[in-house]
Design a protein around this nucleic acid. Structure first.
Lengths: 154, 154
DNA sequence: GTTTTTGTTTTGACTTAGTCAAAACTGTGA
DNA sequence: TCACAGTTTTGACTAAGTCAAAACAAAAAC
């Protein structure tokens, strides 16, 4: 069963290690969700995760995914991509970064953070609070939607 | 009926003017929602707006508020405060600014923007898109929640 | 001032996203 | 292998937002 093409198993082994390092039990739902997000990449909603796992023949209940993403986020293994109101999107990245959201198609792209760690922006001194994170959302039209808006002549 | 203490009427007159300037009909729901947000200030969800208007004896249906905030946002009379996933919060500010969200109590504070207009941050040149807005969410603990977390001494 | 036109509001049912609590289960350490 | 937390699972529930069609009212035309 240790075939060279069984890449899914590699992601699951990594997931188990990461979970233990974070002091969390390596339960089946946690391993499945974390390795899915590492393997598939991108920004996924809870229901997308449920659907992707179902398609792969490893169905788990929706509520379990909510539990898992909440625990993994608290352990900094996942981050929730702030892309405005609406459903939450999760991703399994390692480095701090920001997001671009297209007003046309809703597509979300990662935007590298100049600092690479948080907090990357200085909060104004007038703000009386302990800031530990500054997340930026860039909005506009992506390279595919921009031409379509302002007249589609090249 | 033009009493000197009837300040609500002043907000409504302003609302009517702003709506006409924006090329929108000054209908009752629009005037009520816009003048409420100007008068009450803060960051309000649709259901909060419904409740506040009901309390003031000017009830309007929830769906109407959704229509109004959507139209007024398109006309740049309102802005939607990005404070992460969940329900959308609206405000009637004039100048571009950012937000601080407390992890403890969920309170939202305005954070002045260094530029005061959008887009205030340069998107990285690697991003192939037309960016027109960069909204920043600062997160952490507000001055009331911070002491409570790290031991309430002092 | 009345009528007309067209944009807006309203209604009610519906979808989607997320939460809650209690019972069943399963990793992990003894 | 056992036992005991910590997790998962179940199902019902609340909250947030959407849809479509009929009723209405603001602004323009007469």
């Amino acid at each position: 069963m240790s075939g060279a093409r069984d890449t899914g198993a590699d992601f699951e082994a990594l997931a188990r290690r990461r979970l233990h390092e974070a002091g969390l039990r390596a339960t089946q739902p946690r391993v499945l969700v974390y390795s899915l997000l590492r393997e598939a990449g991108g920004h996924r909603s809870v229901d997308e995760i449920v659907e992707l796992l179902r398609q792969r023949g490893r169905p788990i209940p929706r509520m379990s995914v909510y539990n898992v993403v909440s625990d993994l986020q608290a352990a900094s293994l996942l981050m929730c991509a702030d892309v405005g109101p609406g459903r939450a999107l999760y991703e399994a990245g390692e480095t701090w970064h920001h997001h671009f959201v297209c007003r046309g198609c809703g597509d979300v792209q990662d935007v590298e953070c100049l600092e690479g760690r948080k907090p990357c922006l200085e909060p104004p001194p007038t703000l009386d609070a302990e800031v530990d994170e500054a997340q930026v959302i860039f909005r506009g039209l992506c390279h595919r939607c921009a031409p379509a808006r302002e007249g589609p002549r090249d």
